[in-house]
Amino acid sequence: MPALDRFLAGVERRAFLTARFATGNADEAHDIVQDAMLQLVRSYANRGEQEWGPLFHTILQSRISDWRRRTKVRNRLRVWFGGRNEDDEADPLQNMVDNRSPDPPGQLRDKQAMAALEAAVSKLPHRQQQAFLLRVWEGLDIAQTARAMKCSEGSVKTHYSRAVHALREQLEDHL
């Protein structure tokens, strides 16, 4: 399956980042991407190559939605049974000061811009995040985005426009 291997190699990193934006967790993102790859190979390997892209995005978004549903239920149960939410606790490693030699100014600016964008995209409501990433990063048109998100084209336009507005407000100084 060299063609499918090439296709997956081309989309796996973006898929991982998309899943990480949605989940805020690298391990969960890996599981989601692996599931999406498996599903594509099992069910759609015989389809035409031009169909793989839209199908993969639909599967990936569907897996992310499943993860969100499961997490919501888990969190509700945690609240009911009075458990602590480990995800809310700050990671001590993230709070440590980085004492390594500073990057050259240009690189530093790029890194800051990337970090600011990642943080802002992660904070977007899920549907806005989906619409923004599929339209801007994956380059899907409105109809393809609507299919991947399983909603109407009108909803895609609304979510996308709100996402762009929110991101511009937060990132105008960085980008």
Partner: peptide, 19 residues
Amino acid sequence: TVARLRAARREALEQGQRR
């Protein structure tokens, strides 16, 4: 992360071939 993604891809393709 890149290595982990590559491994996941290989696994998916192998499972697909076995199937």
